[in-house]
């Protein structure tokens, strides 16, 4: 078991190293006109050279990379080029905002998809049809468009909820909920669309197994067959889907934060991408991959707990 976790962790670290290196080469290697962009069209070549030296991008790429890595290993992701603050500080202020939104959305997707998927697998009927409709609708409506429509209907016309902004949970829990209701609603639909279908499929597969018939033949109560045995066996597939949803939400949050003017990781990423603030982009990529790695390992551990065969 410990062996298994260590292996997964090692594989994740290799992934982290590979992706950051690749990203570094791509974004720093392509950073030709950064100083020009920051200073504007009228900057003199001396000004540009001075800024390039100040930012450290006049050095060879491998030198920049080594200094970035040694900094990153100490938790120093460098200075933002446009905001005059350390990247680590900017990101640590914004991470909780995005995380609270994404975790809330993942939880809702998990619960709703589990209920719908199990209902559809066991009963068929309306739940089955609902899943079919949701799967098409949820897939076809881009979350940012859905977000815009929600703003027009619930914020501009009905005035039930704020159109933009974010309230910290510690400041006001109800304000936090009000500020996240529309963004999370816009985020979850597509997730429910795909996850509920996957849960349904996993559940149908589990219920088709030979041992289910044998359990029933042994007089086991239907509720136990369903919720204890079939559900537990369907869990690994469902959890894997949920982890993919989480990754998708991290990306989706970038657009949704823009629509609702939420000061999270996503909106700073967009801002940095447009202004060419490469240290922030690097920091975001590293943060995202670490998040993904943590989630994947958590899912693997849960799966190992659910399915003893994995523990070997």
């Amino acid at each position: 078991m410990l062996n298994y976790v260590a292996k997964r962790l090692a594989s994740s670290l290799v992934l982290l190293a590979l992706v950051t290196t690749l990203t570094f080469v791509m974004v720093f290697g392509g950073a030709d006109n950064v100083a020009q962009n920051i200073l504007g069209e009228n900057a003199t070549s001396e000004q540009i050279a001075a800024l390039e030296q100040k930012l450290g991008i006049d050095r060879p790429l491998y030198e920049q990379y080594l200094s970035w890595v040694s900094g990153a290993l100490h938790g120093d992701l460098g200075q933002s080029w446009t905001l005059g603050e350390s990247v680590a500080r900017i990101l640590s202020g914004r991470l909780p905002v995005t995380l609270s939104m994404v975790i809330l959305a993942t939880a809702i997707i998990g619960v709703v998809s589990a209920l719908l998927g199990i209902m559809a697998a066991v009963r068929g009927g309306w739940a089955d049809r609902a899943i079919q409709v949701i799967s098409v609708v949820g897939f076809s409506l881009p979350n940012f468009w859905l977000g815009l429509i929600l703003v027009v209907v619930f914020a501009l016309n009905l005035r039930w909820l704020p159109a933009t902004g974010y309230t910290d949970f510690t400041t006001s829990p109800t304000g936090w909920l009000a500020s996240l209701t529309l963004p999370v609603a816009a985020l979850v639909l597509s997730g429910i669309a795909s996850a509920s279908q996957q849960v349904r499929g996993a559940m149908i597969d589990a219920l088709r197994q030979d041992y289910v018939r044998t359990l029933r033949a042994g007089g086991i109560k239907p509720s136990s067959v369903l919720f204890r045995h079939a559900l537990r066996n369907a869990m690994p597939a469902a959890l894997t889907v949920l982890s993919l949803q989480f990754i998708g939400l991290l990306g989706g949050a970038a657009i949704i934060e823009r629509v609702f003017a939420i000061p999270g990781l996503g909106s700073i990423t967009v801002q940095a991408a447009l202004s060419g603030d490469i240290p922030i982009l690097m920091g975001v990529v590293v943060t995202m991959i670490i998040l993904v790695v943590i989630v994947n390992i958590a899912i693997d551990l849960t799966n190992a707990w659910v399915n003893p065969k994995v523990r070997l």
């Binding site: 992934l15 990203t23 791509m26 998708g248 970038a254 657009i255 990423t269 990529v285 995202m288 993904v292």
Partner: peptide, 23 residues
């Protein structure tokens, strides 16, 4: 398969945003 798993573990939109300046 390892490469495929790695690619699937990345939030695509974030990667595209990060590469925007160089692309």
């Amino acid at each position: 398969s390892w490469i495929a798993d790695g690619l699937m573990a990345l939030p695509a939109l974030i990667v595209l945003l990060a590469f925007y300046q160089s692309l």
